[in-house]
């Protein structure tokens, strides 16, 4: 892709900023408490906004039927993650469900 290294340089910069920037300013600057509080919601908000369209939309159209293997596997993986809190197990069960569902239920 064109501009690839520009993208990498920019991503590097905006990632090291929150990681190192706060350490570098140690003690000299206190992070405002409301900002700290809001930051805690960022990972869940961003990742949910990525996951839901990926598994609920098929070619940009909402598909909540059992024909949507991503939705089925996503629900199963979500349940496993909720109960077992095990990342590796969640990945294995999620991908396994996707492939099994496609092969057995949807007939390849």
């Amino acid at each position: 892709m064109p501009n690839e290294w520009l993208m990498i340089a920019g991503m590097t910069l905006v990632t090291i900023l929150p990681r190192y920037g706060v350490l570098a300013l140690l003690g000299r600057v206190e992070m405002p408490r409301p900002l700290f509080q809001a930051l805690r919601f960022v990972p869940v908000a961003v990742l949910s906004a990525i996951i839901v369209p990926d598994i609920a939309l098929v070619n940009g159209v909402l598909d909540l039927s059992p024909q949507n293997s991503f939705l089925i596997a996503g629900l199963v993986a979500g349940a496993v993650a909720w109960w077992r809190k095990n990342l590796l197990l969640t990945i294995v069960v999620g991908m396994g469900t996707l492939w099994l569902w496609r092969a057995l239920i949807l007939g390849g």
Binding site: P43, D54, A77, A81, W82, K85, L87, I91, G94
Partner: peptide, 19 residues
Amino acid sequence: WGLNFAMDVTFLGMIMPQL
């Protein structure tokens, strides 16, 4: 092989315990 989906599953594994 549904590799895009592997990313979604990984993210699910990361956020579900936080909910």
